[in-house]
């Protein structure tokens, strides 16, 4: 055992290390548990939950693009009730902070989901998905509207004492404005970034490669965008940031932390190598030992501009 302190703080939440698994890339934990010891991780974020089960989009939902992938799953999920009844018992056996990601079509639905889920002790925090690019219901796209994001944060804050993380959209001009608004309305942290809106066509059929036409771009292709957004928030708003976007190895984690992230989420990499998150925790520790870093938290926003 080394003396390196890998722990980081996200508001009231202390994580044993900065490695979290991103929503929508870990299901409800059971498949990932076959490859990575969940107890070794900093936290796991569930697939987006909505009040009622959602069937999601028809195929094709996924297409690979250069150094990335587009997805339009359409928030397929079992719904809050089934989650509590059937998925929580499995997750309860782990000693890892469980963060529930919540998606909704109306502000009331966000509030109702949070109100129901907050009574479950296993859930330690909420990540509010205001920025899924693939759901059009009601014609609302909350993530791009500053007032909506502020109001969702305020209303959700009113029904839970647990940490609230708002997952921000990169598809806006000034992401820091959103981070500022959610901080002012009681959020404990932000996660940045959700996927970028993208599209791809088959040049022979002239049809979109995914049924939803547009999808969310993820993977290493988006990492520089994510780093820039994290930096923008870090320089302008005093709020913990969970960095997300194309992390493929431990070096990417360090880079995200230097740019201002207190923790990170691993997403697309889980699809390719579900054993990677556990290995990255070990490699971070090795890096700290080799470089005389006693507390990994000292890297946060340590950029030299």
């Amino acid at each position: 055992m080394s003396n390196v302190d890998l722990s980081v703080k996200i508001g009231s939440l202390t994580l044993r290390n900065p490695i979290m698994l991103a929503s929508g890339t870990v299901g409800y934990g059971n498949e990932m548990a076959e490859f990575t010891d969940l107890n070794k991780l900093g936290g796991i974020v569930t697939k987006s939950l909505s009040l009622k089960p959602r069937k999601g989009n028809p195929p094709q939902r996924i297409v690979e693009t250069p150094a990335g992938m587009l997805n339009a799953i359409g928030l397929a999920n079992v719904g809050v009730e089934v989650f509590l009844k059937e998925k929580i018992p499995f997750l309860r056996q782990f000693d890892v902070p469980l963060i529930c990601n919540i998606a909704a079509s109306t502000i009331d639905e966000y509030v109702e989901c949070t109100r129901i889920l907050t009574t479950e002790d296993t859930i330690k925090a909420f990540e509010i998905n205001v920025s899924c690019p693939n759901v059009k219901e009601g014609g609302l796209s909350f993530g791009n509207d500053l007032n909506s994001v502020a109001r969702i944060t305020e209303k959700v804050r009113a029904v839970t004492d647990k940490a609230i993380i708002i997952k921000l959209s990169p598809n806006v001009s000034y992401i820091a404005e959103f981070a500022k608004a959610v901080k002012e309305n009681g959020a404990d942290a932000v996660s940045a970034i959700n996927t970028l809106v993208g599209a791809a066509f088959n040049i022979f059929t002239r049809k979109p490669k995914i049924h939803n036409v547009t999808g969310g771009l993820s993977g290493p292709a988006i990492k520089p965008v994510a780093i820039a957004k994290v930096l923008e928030i870090s320089r302008q708003v005093d709020i913990p940031i969970i960095g997300i976007g194309g992390i493929m190895d431990w070096k990417d984690v360090i880079e995200f932390m230097i740019a201002g992230s207190s923790a990170v989420q691993i997403g697309t990499l889980n699809f390719i190598d579900p054993s990677a998150p556990g290995k990255i925790v070990n490699q971070l520790e090795e890096h700290c030992i080799k470089n005389g870093i006693e507390k990994i938290s000292s890297l946060i926003a340590s950029y030299q501009l």
Partner: peptide
């Protein structure tokens, strides 16, 4: 088309003839 192959990406739905509320 699928990304992971073991259920976490939810990328490969197929319509069932018996259950209409989920893929």
């Amino acid at each position: 088309a699928m990304a992971c192959g073991f259920g976490i990406c939810q990328g490969c739905p197929i319509e069932s003839t018996t259950e209409s509320d989920r893929y």
